[in-house]
Design a protein around this nucleic acid. Structure first.
Lengths: 126, 126
DNA sequence: AGTATATTTGCAACTTAGTTGCATTAATAG
DNA sequence: CTATTAATGCAACTAAGTTGCAAATATACT
């Protein structure tokens, strides 16, 4: 179901994620492409790529949207239960390959969770 | 150090939290008091109450700011490691009295974490 | 290749959450 | 009850994200 067309904008965005394979904030992407892709288009491309299971999104410390490449996400079932780590020094975000166990909650039906761990990243620890 | 004066605005805001003791979004508070307290003042009162360790803040699903009464938070050391639960049906948020264990991360210094669990709340499960 | 169709894009204008500066008001100390 | 300092209201602003619509472009079909 190639709902997502391989346009120039899509290629550019995907290249950005291939380059450093970390999470990138929408703001950063909009800024990075501000002479090549329109702001609105960046938002829409990211939206489509998320729908297609290529990227997944989450919120950083200030409620800013970030995207990262999906590894184990399929189009319909996003396994977004992995935590993200945001550095308080440089602000960069990594996806962590760790599983966080969400406790069973009586009388509640859990469908997902967002975990954002804050601290100093590997680079900033030196 | 009574840096926070007991003004009318502060009393009104505190009453709101005493009333239902759940988390309340800033948007809700601004709206609730829109004929009694100026929007800017609501933001500033919440800010001060958080500094004083009376309330703690966190972000809901759409990056909207929420506040909840602190139980074990002191003025200088906020023990904000408890998770929050946001209902996907009614949108309300509870503080959970559960501890989430953050895994040890090699080469990183963890200073905190924000955990937002999503699902159906007790009321909406019936 | 050339054309039809549907998706994608750019633009401008808008919405919404949150912030800032500054003059006025009100709480507390003395 | 006055002086001092913190708190408030207002208006204007910032920044992230959205919407509608006309123009452009990718794909499917012949």
């Amino acid at each position: 179901m190639g709902v997502v067309r391989k346009t120039q904008s899509v290629s550019l965005v995907l290249e950005a994620f291939k380059a450093d394979s970390k999470a990138i904030s929408v703001i950063d992407l909009v800024d990075r492409f501000n002479d090549k892709i329109n702001k609105t288009t960046v938002y829409r491309v990211l939206d489509r790529l998320e729908d297609d299971g290529v990227l997944h999104s989450f919120l950083g410390v200030n409620g800013i949207k970030w995207y990262a490449p999906c590894k184990d996400c399929s189009e319909h079932k996003h396994s977004d239960v992995h935590p993200h780590f945001q550095c308080t020094d440089c602000g960069k975000i990594d996806c962590l390959n760790v599983d966080i166990t969400i406790p069973k909650l009586p009388n509640r039906e859990v469908v997902g969770a967002q975990v954002l761990i804050q601290g100093k990243c590997e680079a900033c620890c030196n």
